[in-house]
């Protein structure tokens, strides 16, 4: 299993990396949307975890690059609890799962494992 993590704060990236470590050792981290696009164009990931969803609402074609891997690539967005319309917009933008923070560790892992 290959996972890509997008988080601006370095500690968030390491924390998520530690959280998903029991599932897989092949974890790639990035701190920018440009990095996310670049990584998705180069590699195929089984799952993408993003802290925040600004990249979906900025008008960029990042979702297209992320969804390049087809339906097998699970896209999980972790964000603070926000308005229902914003969540709907994120889901319409191509996100598989929206999880509000704080998220339970085992729940996140179950979401990643589910086929």
């Amino acid at each position: 299993m290959k996972i890509l993590i997008l988080a601006v704060r370095p500690t968030d990236r390491y924390a998520l990396q530690g959280l998903v470590a029991p599932l897989c050792r092949d974890v790639v981290v990035t701190d920018s949307v440009a990095g996310l696009e670049r990584m998705c164009l180069r590699h195929r990931f089984d799952a993408v975890i993003s802290v925040g969803f600004e990249w979906l609402t900025s008008g960029r074609d990042t979702a297209v690059a992320v969804r390049r891997g087809g339906r097998d690539c699970r896209v999980l967005v972790l964000s603070e609890a926000c308005h229902e319309q914003a969540v709907l917009g994120v889901v319409e933008g191509g996100v598989g799962q929206y999880l509000s923070l704080p998220v339970e560790a085992h729940r996140l892992r179950r979401k990643l494992c589910r086929r």
């Binding site: 500690t11 924390a15 959280l19 923070l101 998220v103």
Partner: peptide
């Protein structure tokens, strides 16, 4: 300081610990 940040990140992102 870094360790505290890291612990803080883990505890902010997750629940149920």
């Amino acid at each position: 300081e870094a360790l505290l940040e890291l612990l803080h990140s883990v505890c902010t992102l997750t629940s149920g610990y």
